[in-house]
Design a protein around this nucleic acid. Structure first.
Lengths: 298, 298
DNA sequence: CAGGTCTTGTGAGTTCACGCACAGAAATAA
DNA sequence: TTATTTCTGTGCGTGAACTCACAAGACCTG
């Protein structure tokens, strides 16, 4: 049963009882209506209407079609209402993705956002692979590093994520506190597994310490943080994250060159959606708050 | 939400995930599919798909449309199956119409037909006005008189409905039995109200008796029959009907010139339907039986 | 890295479906 | 009856929608 348009035409004919009435309702010429009915009947191999000078009277098959098409029109109208009204309110699904490392920072914000917009179903995706906006896998992504420049993505700077060098109290008691940058080479360093990492803090670290000083290496920032907390050595920990661990001692204060720039990325098709805008506004208002919090504890 | 064809196109795109796949499934060029999607999105004012080089990924709205269109396609397929299979079996409605006078003769036959085809819903329409086949008011009509010649109706002779002159026993006892045709003029005659009636028996009667002899006149054959039974005079009664009244005496035996020809009439569009054919076959097999019955009692 | 094979997207040519203008038939009104 | 209106039905010309052809991008594979 292809050609749904012809079904719609037949539906209007059954509704009005005349070809002319259906033609007027559909905004087409009555000859078109006649052709549609003829084609549909030829395809089905059955008469849908009895033709006479006063109009078209539906047969049993025509009445059957009338019922089905009536239901279809209702469903399409409801669908149209849902789709047109979808963008207006803040509801539906909102899929956010970021690196795993930022989960601890974002989770409270996401929870608060959901308190303000209870109708939104939040999905927070974190994983090894990058979830790609262009395939519709996520609506909003928080990305780190240099400004992503993909054509269909709208990118805006979020905030600079401050890092500082930390160590556990136990480690400092055992190995002492480095006085200046050059002293780091004599310490046990916790760093990224890939020594060629493009993260600015690790590029800085590679210039300061030899590879042999990197005693603990992991691809995961959180694992590194845990290692530092456990006293494995000195390593970069997000300032925000460090606040949660009373045992940590700040070895060196955060520097701007260590900070990693965070970006808010959305797909251009969804950027204007009300719920996306609401979420972005929410995130940005918290960004300034985070920056203040981090600055306070420097 | 007009243009159901575009909805169907969008449905196929959501189903296949690619424009090319949908185009192949629909049997059209992929450029057509793209234009349909663009038009639909423009009309709805919302994106249905995320475009990327690997295909189209449905958004929330697109998935909503997918669900609705899936249900629609299912219903259309079921509808097509019903319509295509409708003509094969003997089921559904069967609307039969005839003059009221023949109800007593047909009712038992209709009941028997329904016993053989229990899935058929029989509607037997009788009324003052003629139910018109061309408006779909009835599938089969039994008509009397000269052969109807309407273009869209297929007409076939049914059988000749025999009439005879009857009177009540009480009337004969009071007025005696007419020996020959000319004697009728001296009797009380029950006849049709319209003296110019085209029925052959009444045209014959008008030639035999003066208007003054017609003491009881009615437009309804059944009323005339009742009048004869009640002893109002001599009148024409269907042979078949007369058998049901023990009080009636046959004044003159049935003649072929009195009989009224009955016709089976069906609309050309429905004539080939299985249920109509089954009913016609059934009626015709009973016609010969009726003729024998009538002949027996002459 | 290069080649092949999917995609989507866009401008140009062509066809098919639509609109127009009639004709015919039936019901209503005068 | 005749006139009028309102239907359906059909041949014909035109334009919108389709097909075609080509370009560009993404992904996989050797």
């Amino acid at each position: 049963m292809d050609n749904w348009g012809e079904v719609r035409t037949a539906f209007q004919v059954a509704l009005h009882g005349t070809v002319s009435g259906a033609a007027e309702a559909l905004g087409v010429h009555h000859a078109t209506v006649i052709r549609h009915i003829d084609a549909l009947e030829a395809q089905l191999g059955a008469k849908l209407f009895q033709r006479h000078a006063r109009g078209y009277t539906p047969t049993e098959a025509g009445e059957d079609l009338l019922r089905v098409a009536q239901a279809t029109e209702d469903q399409f109208n409801q669908l149209q209402g849902r789709i047109k009204g979808r963008g207006e309110g803040v509801s539906g699904e909102l899929v956010v993705t970021s690196l795993v490392g930022m989960a601890g920072m974002f989770a409270p914000v996401l929870a608060e956002f959901q308190r303000d917009y209870p109708k939104v179903v939040l999905r927070y995706l974190t994983g090894d692979r990058l979830f790609r906006l262009e395939y519709g896998e996520a609506h909003v992504a928080i990305r780190a590093g240099s400004a992503p420049e993909q054509p269909d993505n709208v990118v805006q700077p979020f905030f600079r994520h401050p890092f500082a060098l930390y160590a556990a109290k136990s480690y400092i008691e055992a190995h002492g506190m480095p006085a200046q940058d050059a002293d780091l080479a004599k310490h046990r360093i916790v760093c990224h597994d890939d020594l060629n990492s493009r993260a600015p803090m690790y590029r800085w670290l590679r210039q300061q310490v030899p590879e042999s000083a990197c005693f603990f290496r992991s691809t995961d920032l959180r694992a590194n943080t845990e290692a530092v907390v456990a006293g494995a050595g000195i390593g970069f920990v997000p300032v925000w994250e460090a606040h949660r661990h009373a045992d940590l001692v700040q070895v060196m204060a955060p520097r701007d060159e260590w900070a990693s720039q965070l970006w808010l990325v959305t797909h251009v098709d969804l950027h204007r959606a009300a719920k996306v805008q609401a979420f972005l506004k929410y995130l940005k208002s918290h960004a300034t708050q985070w920056e203040k919090t981090c600055a306070l504890h420097d």
